[in-house]
């Protein structure tokens, strides 16, 4: 029986291709921006930009979008893959996390 944890190459590509840009855009670049004491987004006072982020907002959002698109592509790919009988809901000896 196919183990539920058995990952295909597509799974791994989607996990890394989706997760890395999102973690990079939000967490890694976010930490760099935060520790540089820069605002997360441009600060506008009376119509004038008084502070800008170290990491451009569009770059960070773009990375998040890229990750989401990878996950979407994976979901579309999965729609085209016929499920195997073993891939149904696993009812086997479920138990709580201790």
């Amino acid at each position: 029986m196919k183990q539920p944890t058995e990952l295909t190459k597509a799974d791994r590509i989607a996990m890394l291709g989706g997760g890395i840009p999102i973690a990079l855009g939000i967490v890694v670049l976010g930490l760099i921006n935060t520790f540089a004491d820069a605002p997360a987004a441009p600060v506008v006072e009376e119509g004038t930009v008084v502070a800008t982020p170290l990491i451009p907002v569009d770059l960070r959002v773009g990375l998040v979008l890229l990750g989401l698109l990878v996950w979407l592509a994976y979901a579309v790919y999965k729609l085209g893959v016929a499920p195997t009988p073993e891939a149904g809901i696993d009812r086997a000896d479920a138990r709580q996390v201790r």
Binding site: P4, T5, D90, R91, A92, D93, A94, R95, Q96, V97
Partner: peptide, 15 residues
């Protein structure tokens, strides 16, 4: 480990 529960008599598992 697996997080799981028995819901209305049906075993559900999150791997």
């Amino acid at each position: 480990e697996r997080a799981g529960a028995d819901l209305f008599g049906r075993g559900l598992a999150l791997d």
